[in-house]
Design a protein around this nucleic acid. Structure first.
Lengths: 227, 227
DNA sequence: ACAAAAGTGTTGGAAGTACACCCATGA
DNA sequence: TCATGGGTGTACTTCCAACACTTTTGT
C-alpha cells in the first residue's frame, strides 16, 4: 500500500454520477414497473424511472435505495437490488455528461402504496411491457431490465418475491407468465416447480370462483432470490 | 423535447469516470489476460488491467478501445468489447472517487505483440486464472470478467474468436477448457460442436506429432461472437 | 514397433414439451 | 346443473454425461 494519496489527475473527466432503478411488482396479474412523473426540467411532466444523482460519500446501491425511498416512498433492502448496466452515452442527458448506473429491483409482495416525493410530482405503477413514453434513455434501460429479470427467473426462484407468504400454484404461474410475457403449460409448470422441492403445501386452501386451490409456502431452507 | 438545456444541478456529485478492460487471448493452451505494469502512483509497479479516465466527448467504449491501444498497442474493433459491470465503491481509488465501467474484450487470434505505452512501463500476457497481485480492485474485476466469459461461451460461439480461420477440433476444445478451467470429454465435445452445425471441414489436415487432425473453419452464416 | 494424438458410438438418466380430461366448489 | 377455475399423467424428444478402443501418422 502506498502512503501517498495524490488527487485525481487533470485529465480525469468529471461527470455527473447518477443511479436509476427499474423496480418491478405484480398487480392484477400483470408485471408493473414503478415510474415517477418528473417535476423539473429537463423532461418535466414526462415519466421516468426513479433515480438521481449519487451523493458524495454514498455507495451506488445506497444512492439507488435512497432515490427510491425519497421519490416513491418505497423502502427496500439491499438484497432486492442488483446493478445490471451502466448508461453513459454522450447526449443522453441534455444538462451535460451524466453516467447512470442502472439497478434492477424486485419489490416484495404488498408494496403497493407509492407517493411522490423529492423532485417528482407523481409516482405510479405502470405496465412494464407497455409503459408510457419515458424520459431520457429510460426506455432502453427498462428494456434491458426486463431482459435481466427474465434471465433471473431461471436461477433464483425470483417469482416468489412477488407473492405473499402463502400463495397458490396458479398465482405463481401467473407471475412467471407476466415476467416472460407468454403463456405456460399448467401441467408442466406444476411438475417443474414441485419437483424443485422449494414449495410445501400449507394444508389450507383458498376458495374463489371455481375449485379451491391448495396454498403453498416456500420451504424453510430456500434462500430468497439472490439478485 | 425541451429547448432548455440547464446545466447539472448543484447536488450532482462529480466523479472521475474511468474504464478498465479485461482482454483475453489464448496462448500456449492457457487463457491469458492482458495486464499492464503501472508507472505512476498509486500502485506504481503493480500490475493492473489496462484502463484509464474517459475523456470529454468520448463514449465509454471508445475510451476503452483508446486505453487499450495506447497502453498495450492492441487495436480492437468495438464488436469485441462488452461492458459488463461498473465498480464504484468508495475508497476503491485512493485519489478520490473514481467510478470504473469495466469491459470484457476477446482478442482475435494472433494478437500477441503488446508494447507498453502511455503511463505504463510494461504490458504482458498473464495467466488469467493465476494472475499476479493486482492494483486497486482489479482482482474483483477480473473475477467477474472470467465469470462473464464463461457465460458467453454457452450462447455465442465465443471460442472461435480465439482461433485462426482454420483450426482443429482438439484446438477448439483446448480453448473451451481454458476458459472453463476444467477438462471436457472429447467425444461429447465433438458431438455437441458438430451437431451445432457451425463448423465445416476444410478438407485439409494438420500434421503434428500424432495422427493428423482435420481442419475446420466456421460456416459461412455464423455470426462472429456477439459480445 | 512404438509413441502420440485423433477419431469414433452407445447407453442411461434428466429435463422439457405436447397434449385432454376429471374434480371441487359456488351460484 | 352448470359455469369456473384447480388439478392430474403419459409419451416423446432432446440434451447431457459416462465410458474405452481403434486409427493414423512420425520416428
Amino acid at each position: 500500500m502506498n502512503r501517498a494519496a495524490p488527487s485525481l489527475p487533470a485529465q480525469a473527466t468529471q461527470v455527473g454520477l447518477a443511479v436509476d432503478v427499474a423496480a418491478f411488482a405484480m398487480h392484477g396479474g400483470e408485471l408493473q414497473v414503478l415510474l415517477v412523473e418528473r417535476g423539473e426540467l429537463p423532461h418535466a411532466r414526462d415519466w421516468a424511472l426513479p433515480g438521481g444523482f449519487v451523493q458524495p460519500g454514498e455507495e451506488l446501491h445506497e444512492a439507488a435505495l435512497r432515490e427510491l425511498r425519497t421519490e416513491t416512498s418505497v423502502d427496500l433492502e439491499p438484497r432486492h437490488l442488483e446493478q445490471f448496466y451502466t448508461f453513459g452515452a454522450l447526449g443522453r442527458d441534455p444538462r451535460g455528461r451524466v453516467v447512470s448506473v442502472a439497478h434492477l429491483a424486485v419489490l416484495p409482495h404488498g408494496t403497493v402504496r407509492v407517493t411522490a416525493g423529492g423532485h417528482t410530482v407523481g409516482a405510479a405503477w405502470q405496465r412494464a411491457h407497455h409503459p408510457p413514453r419515458l424520459a431520457f434513455d429510460h426506455q432502453a434501460i427498462l428494456d434491458r431490465a426486463l431482459g435481466r429479470l427474465q434471465l433471473r427467473l431461471e436461477y433464483a426462484n425470483l417469482a416468489l418475491e412477488f407473492l405473499p407468504d402463502t400463495f397458490t400454484l396458479p398465482e405463481l404461474q401467473t407471475v412467471h407468465e407476466a415476467i416472460l410475457n407468454r403463456k405456460l403449460d399448467k401441467r408442466n409448470f406444476r411438475k417443474r416447480l414441485l419437483a424443485q422441492g422449494n414449495l410445501v403445501p400449507s394444508g389450507e386452501r383458498r376458495s374463489g370462483v371455481g375449485r379451491p386451490a391448495q396454498l403453498y409456502r416456500r420451504a424453510k431452507n430456500v434462500r430468497s432470490a439472490a439478485l
